[in-house]
Write a protein that binds this DNA or RNA. Structure first.
Length: 512
RNA sequence: GCGGCCGUAGUCUAGCCUGGAUAGGAUGGGAGCCUGCCACGCUCCAGACCCGGGUUCAAAUCCCGGCGGCCGCACCA
């Protein structure tokens, strides 16, 4: 199987196949070689795959969990990010130690070593630099006192909205959350909400990353599938009930104390909840739901998944507790797929303070500021890992063993030979399957073997071949991508058989 | 953003050190022939030196800058 080679070069093989076959590639490069990094195009197959993942998330999570999906603008007033705390954390002034090349935030250095707190934010670079020199601020790492000039890092894209705007007054959102938080009050009202109140958003977000790398893994513009659960921290009884049948489910955690050994603890939902580790039944439930979703629906083996507990300094500024759901591949190691943050009332309270609008809700005559728990999927990373974990090769062929329900092309139809009578019949069968709602691909070029290989490479689970026997008795062969085995089926039963096959039945089961 | 390595068709690669005439090959792609089930074979076609500047009679090749890629550091709110 060439396992050794596979592990080392998986990333390159997957991105190369993705470009060759039209899953994804780097934006604008064909025409402009100096186009900035971090922007990626989804080709026809990639778009289909991404849509399938999104749709299955809608079906399995949004719909089943009673979330209301909304769409909010990509552009938001800068005030929103002041209230959320992003502004403070997004515009850093950094300096670098000339001796050990480590970087530090200027305000932190001065705060820590000079005890100064006020007015640092409004201070000019010259003044800050003067303080660094006059107070002899030392590098916390190597004790040197030789700083480079101050550099600005702006991690949000700002905009001047309005033809006469000079100063930035808006920004592209770095997460969809703020849209949900800002519209919480209105949405809650129009949908006659009660707690827990769940919103969902699918959409693009923008981060001015310092060094975008590794294709879909770190981009400047990417997509999130987010769930925003507003709840009463003192009453999660709905979730006590929902969690009950799942109490024995084993969650996989990398606890902060096991950071160095990398030991993963399998802890049942019951233990996690009762020990207080996962705070409450609501958070515990959602941790279970997402691990199950990625394991059972997206098809990632459980041993490749873990929740990594983030420690102080790693956690976002808004989070009280925070786990990253991560996926493992041999060449990229553990990569974050879902950011699970318990944001408490950080966001709503922040907006209430800045806007002056009361954002509390009435619960049985009691005024309450809802808390927010947010599992946020990085969709592009999911797309990459679905492809990477499906990648197979042996001496004969390369194929994607995609979960059948995620495959962009569901079935291919081929005439065995490019002869008019076979082509005519094959096209009829293609149209029949299209009218039955299948995503069908038709091909008559090249040998039959070559056509099977082409479909293998894009993960098409089923190939239907029309031969001379089809013309005489109305049967076709159905080939399984993974085993390369075939069964012969009557045309009348083909749509039903195909449907069963795509939802997981084996070829043997189809002919029973 | 810093340091190291690197940049030739969709992909992989020869040529670069030591400057020289239509930049070679493989694979993939298109058109056709052949072909009774797993990348057969044959014919034809299209496809590249990351961008800009410099040195030179002459630059894929040497020099400078930019952009990009990988790895490490930092960053990842």
């Amino acid at each position: 199987m060439g396992e050794q080679i596979l592990k080392e070069e998986l990333f390159e093989k997957v991105t190369s196949l993705a470009e060759r076959r039209g899953f994804f590639w780097q934006s604008a490069r064909t025409l402009y070689s100096d186009a900035p990094a971090g922007y990626w195009v989804y080709g026809p197959l990639g778009t289909l795959l991404k849509r399938k993942i999104t749709d299955i998330w809608r079906k399995e999570i949004v719909f089943k969990e009673g979330a209301l999906e909304i769409e909010t603008p990509l552009t938001l007033p800068i005030k929103v990010f002041k209230a959320s705390g992003h502004l403070e954390h997004f515009f850093d002034k950094l300096t670098e130690c000339r001796k050990c090349h480590t970087r530090f935030r200027v305000d932190k250095l001065i705060e820590e070593q000079c005890g100064v707190k006020e007015n640092l934010e409004g201070m000019s670079d010259e003044d800050l630099m003067r303080i660094l020199i006059e107070k002899g601020v030392r590098c916390p790492r190597c004790r040197a006192s030789n700083w480079t000039e101050i550099k600005h890092f702006n991690l949000m894209f700002t905009l001047q909205v309005g033809a006469d705007a000079i100063e930035p007054n808006a920004a592209l959102r770095p997460e969809t959350t703020q849209g949900s938080v800002v519209e919480f009050r209105k949405t809650y009202m129009v949908s006659r909400g009660k707690l827990p109140f769940i919103l969902a958003q699918v959409g693009r977000v923008f981060r001015n990353e310092i060094s975008p790398r590794r294709a879909l893994i770190r981009m400047r513009e990417f997509q999130q599938l987010e769930i925003h659960i507003f709840f009463d921290p003192d009453n999660t009884s709905d979730y006590d009930r929902k969690l009950k049948p799942l109490l024995n489910y084993k969650l996989r955690f990398l606890r902060k104390e096991d950071r160095e050994t990398g030991k993963i603890s399998e802890i049942t939902a019951r233990e996690a909840l009762e020990s207080g580790y996962t705070v409450n039944s609501l958070i515990t439930y959602w941790l279970v739901i997402y691990q199950k979703f990625f394991n059972e629906v997206i098809g990632i083996p459980a041993e490749r998944l873990r929740y990594r507990e983030l420690i102080e300094g790693e956690k976002a500024h808004y989070a009280l507790v925070h786990w990253d759901l991560e996926v493992y591949t041999e060449d990229l190691g553990w990569v974050e797929l879902v950011n699970n943050a318990y944001r408490t009332d950080h966001d709503l309270s922040g907006h209430q303070k800045v806007s002056g609008v009361d954002l509390s809700v009435d619960v049985g005559g009691r005024k309450l500021m809802p808390h927010l728990y947010e599992p946020s999927i990085g969709l592009d990373r999911v797309v990459y890992h679905v492809l990477a974990l499906s990648y197979r090769e042996d001496v004969k062929r390369v194929w994607l063993a995609l979960p059948r329900h995620l495959a962009p092309i569901e079935v291919a139809v081929f005439p065995l030979l490019s002869k008019d009578e076979l082509i005519f019949r094959a096209k009829q069968i293609r149209d029949l399957l299209k009218s039955e709602g299948f995503h069908v691909f038709y091909d008559e070029k090249g040998s039959i073997g070559r056509r099977y290989r082409r479909m293998d490479e894009v993960g098409t689970p089923a190939c239907v071949t029309v031969d001379y026997q089809t013309l005489s008795d109305g049967t076709v062969t159905l080939r399984d991508r993974d085993t390369m085995n075939q069964v012969r089926l009557r045309l009348e039963e083909l749509p039903r058989a195909l449907r069963r096959f795509l939802s997981g039945a084996s070829l043997e089961e189809l002919v029973e």
